[in-house]
Design a protein around this nucleic acid. Structure first.
Lengths: 210, 210, 210, 210
DNA sequence: ACATAATCGAGACGGTACGTCCCGTCTTGTG
DNA sequence: CACAAGACGGGACGTACCGTCTCGATTATGT
């Protein structure tokens, strides 16, 4: 998914996804990559996902349209990459307590969605997940996956510490925590603040604790 | 929201939303309304929300574009109406048991979302919810609201029967039930079948039962 | 060739080539026709045939690109029509003398080609004559044809008056008169002034007089 | 005009237009020159002058675009050189008779223009003559000039032999012979065959013979 | 023998125009 | 009046070339 590794022909070496320049021809400009992704973020903030045009991105980045199309074959892929590049870093709370750990990680990952911009990013992505299964796969692997792993880690530590029952399906519990936050953001148009997240965590944990 | 009541100028009478014909001139064609909504559903099924164009709808319905714009001011409103017209009817299970009631109502309302078509409708709507707060309000009132009321009714009956604790926030619990189904549909691209819904209900009820 | 009669589907009535509006739909705007053709002439004068772009014509005419493409399928056809619309009017000299008649008609028709603009129009047309046989046919019928007829008339009156031999091929003589003027314009880049035209006429008439 | 002598910086030595290599560095490839010119001819034959692109020439010749731009500064110059390289050789007929000499040289020089390819070359050149005066000069000197000289020679021998009048302007007569052939080719889209050329010569000679 | 230097094929760069599609509005003639 | 048809000005689409600019690799020459 690194821009420069995206090519019409499949990469020869799947293991190394670093943008290695092999063979003839001028290599792709790294600065152009950066300028484009930055321009995408700016435009998303200004006008939202589907008012965003490739032409405005190109113009803002000081780049030809072809330079964008050379790297990304659709607005969707472009936006996924741009968002991936700015995703907030993961947190790995370990307070020794399942409830507090969950609140921390959920606030860090989903609590900042109050602004309409983020909501539009989110829904724009969902759009693409439906349309393009590959993008969906990508999103789940690169964006959602790591966050889910953190939550799963918290739950498993809770099980080890006997805070939680051992027979729960952790994947189900993760959905139970994350799903409502998505739902409120997308459908309810509510900002999930820390208090709301804490109530949610309390409800869920009540159902799974030992 | 009934098509014929939608006019460029605000309706004089908000209470009666039946299409009343007042004054001179040819009244609006009722068959055109139906043809348009049907064409929208067909197009949504064929190409999805944002590949859907007003022109293709008009052409499929055998109708002029102006006839559509005379009734709906945007693609979003048109699509909301079209979907509202085909929404599956509400069920009101009353098995005397919270768990079974919840499974029934959730399967009826969210279990048929296996097909990509429905997912696209869903996400297309979400799109509009973000963009246009009025549409969001509309959606919550006319589509989501009644379903939530049914679930709330089930929960309250459960409280009366002492199946559930009395101190739970029913709105939070509804989100806890509905959110993961949305999430799996939109992000996970998984069909929430009856078994998955039952597992979900078990988890949630475990957290709220007396 | 009248703009409004040009349609994707062949005209039902070939005899009447007037832009008659039959059937449904908004008729094509006559003012748009005029604005486009005028803009073409202006652009040709400013930048020449192949620096002329459809976009600049549309912008100068205050018209959408589609409005142009609805009427003409290529730059060539557009330019042919535009030039046809401004072609200098025919003259019909009748001095009673073949030499003077010829000089008059040639000066009127080909003597004004001194400016590079006209030369570019000319060569732009030739370009299209080669590429598109239909355009060539059109050009010969609508632009060149009438002028040739005038010259043929002069020659035939000369034959009747016994100024010219009766056995000459008038078409050949027309080529003999017109060809060198084209040639000098296109290849020699010389302005054919009245004196040069008179010398030419003298030479040709010397070969065909009785 | 020899490819290798064409440089971004003006040639130091105008007299010797042979490609002399001075100083260090890899000399220009002669085989690349040949491949490019051949590719130009092929492309001209396939798609005509203004559908011809530098990229297609480069690709067909198996050459980088820069290798072309290093030698020629425009499509026009490139095409002029390519055509010059394949121009049919001059003939120098001397039958002792003006009429027959003229027919021979005109057939050799202009009679083979029946094919649309040649016409396209011709008109493509004309295009450039108008646009770029230097190219026009070049064309007249290197392609048209020698042919005109041959015709002038024939005419002057005719004058010496008293076949022709001594007071004629030979340049005018050349135009009179060549112009109509151009005209028919470009505008009339007719192949000037030997019979047509003979009729033309007869008409012209009739006007200039003693 | 080796550094120098200009070449080579390849192909990415910032641009511009293309011709198409659809937007939402606006005229037509007909019922 | 509303209707179907369809033209209108506008604007983004994705493509094709433009002429320029790196790349790594090659090929003579001048020391």
């Amino acid at each position: 998914m690194t821009p420069s590794s995206r090519t019409p022909v499949p990469a020869a070496d799947v293991v190394a996804d670093e943008p290695v320049h092999r063979g003839a021809g001028r290599p792709r400009s790294v600065t152009a990559d950066a300028a484009i992704l930055e321009a995408v973020i700016d435009e998303l903030a200004l006008v939202g996902f589907d008012e965003l045009t490739i032409e405005s991105v190109a113009s803002r980045a000081g780049v030809g349209k072809a330079t964008i199309y050379r790297r990304w074959s659709s607005k969707s892929e472009l936006v996924v990459d741009a968002i991936a590049a700015v995703k907030p870093p993961l947190v790995h709370p370990d307070t020794g307590n399942v409830r507090d750990d969950l609140v921390e990680v959920l606030v860090a990952g989903y609590g900042r969605r109050a602004e309409p911009v983020t909501a539009r990013l989110l829904v724009g992505l969902c759009m693409e997940l439906q349309r393009n299964p590959e993008i969906g796969q990508l999103y789940r692997e690169r964006l959602a996956g790591p966050r889910r792993q953190v939550i799963i880690g918290i739950l498993e530590r809770g099980i080890e510490r006997r805070e939680l029952r051992a027979d729960i399906g952790v994947e189900d519990v993760v959905d139970l925590l994350v799903g409502p936050l998505f739902y409120r953001q997308l459908v309810g148009a509510q900002a999930p603040d820390r208090a709301a997240i804490r109530r949610l965590v309390d409800l869920v944990v009540a159902g799974v604790e030992a």
